[in-house]
């Protein structure tokens, strides 16, 4: 199935901003994180279709996954 992966802030460095990916059915976000060589503790916020899920979430075809390190401001 196909999912859109978006990386932000430092997670982009040496990787990409946005990419479509073919992933096996039943994949979890953390499988993608691992395949991108992102240390799991570097992902602070994981949104799937704009909602906070955590990286254990099982993805569906067409999902948009947005991954952030710790960020902040005001």
């Amino acid at each position: 199935m196909n999912v859109t992966i978006k990386l932000f802030a430092q997670l982009r460095e040496g990787r990409f901003g946005v990419e479509n990916s073919e992933v096996p059915e039943q994949s979890r976000v953390k499988d993608v994180v691992q395949s991108l060589n992102i240390p799991s503790d570097h992902v602070k916020i994981c949104l799937v279709n704009g909602k906070d899920t955590g990286t254990d979430h099982v993805m569906q075809n067409g999902d948009t996954v947005s991954l952030f390190p710790a960020v902040g401001g005001a």
């Binding site: 978006k6 932000f8 916020i45 704009g50 906070d52 960020v71 902040g72």
Partner: peptide, 23 residues
């Protein structure tokens, strides 16, 4: 702290555009 130690110095507060947009 990763926010005050890393993210804010590098990207400033504007780092929030993308996360608020995604959310």
């Amino acid at each position: 702290h990763p926010v005050s130690g890393d993210a804010l110095p590098k990207y400033g507060t504007d780092v929030l555009v993308n996360i608020l947009n995604e959310a």
